[in-house]
Amino acid sequence: MYYAGIDAGSNTIKTVILGEEGIASYHVIKTGLGGEEQAARCLEEACAKARIGREEIACIYCTGYGREYLNFPQGRKSEIICHGVGVHWILPEVRTIVDIGGQDSKGIRLNERGEVENFNMNDKCAAGTGRFLETMATALQVPLEEFGACALRATEPVRVSSTCTVFAETEVISHIARGKKRDEILLGVCQSIVDRIAAMVRSIGVKPPVAMTGGVAKNPAVVKLMGDRLGLPLLLPPEPQITGALGAALMARQDILSRQNSQPALSG
């Protein structure tokens, strides 16, 4: 039997198909104009990768911003709960998650069963999110995938203010104009994200080990700087972007299993 989890985020849609043996496939696409259609396409691609038909999926759970607008899922859960479940399945020892997504960042504390004990999110500001990183990548003409690696080549970050994205953008542009080294600006941008959210993350009472998830976890500079700030090395799931979708798929499976009156089989 197969289960699917869809994380319809602001930047990307992620789908995970879970089989009896574990993750059967996953797929990530740009949200674009989003909507039902895009999510359905993501699900189909994931099914194709897993070489199964959609009818073989017993249950679909949905999370992320788009969860309320999709008609096909049988269950909807917040991405905080889903990240917790997803990370707990991959890295059961983890007690704290730092998730930096496209539109918001979160700190999540888990108990030993992978249940959320405490959480916090950034306020309504794009500073300290993946969106900010993306805008800066465009301004600095660096592919997003290379952002972190380039930043780590710099030793001294250029100072980029972190309370306002609009400010920070003008600032970065004028740093370019003033001939600052690109890599130093990149490192400054990463530093400003960490500055913006470190206190928010610590407000939940960080317990080690800590994992980082979300698209920004693919940026090694942010991961390193956040680890330095928390004074702990950060663990990374192999595919940090899909833990929310994975969590949703696990909850879909849990849903069916509990209906069949089985024991919960969430860890493992």
């Binding site: 911003y65 309320e68 859960k77 917040s78 991405e79 905080i80 709960i81 917790g84 479940v85 539109q103 918001d104 069963r113 992978g114 249940e115 959320v116 004990e117 405490n118 959480f119 999110m121 309504k124 909850m251 849990q254 919960p264 969430l266």
Partner: peptide, 22 residues
């Protein structure tokens, strides 16, 4: 109260209050 972020927070909080995520 801006929609989606508020929903995520509230949904998670209600889950926590109910006890356990599941």
């Amino acid at each position: 109260l801006e929609g989606e972020q508020v929903r995520t927070r509230v949904q998670t909080f209600v889950d926590i209050v109910r006890g356990g995520a599941f």
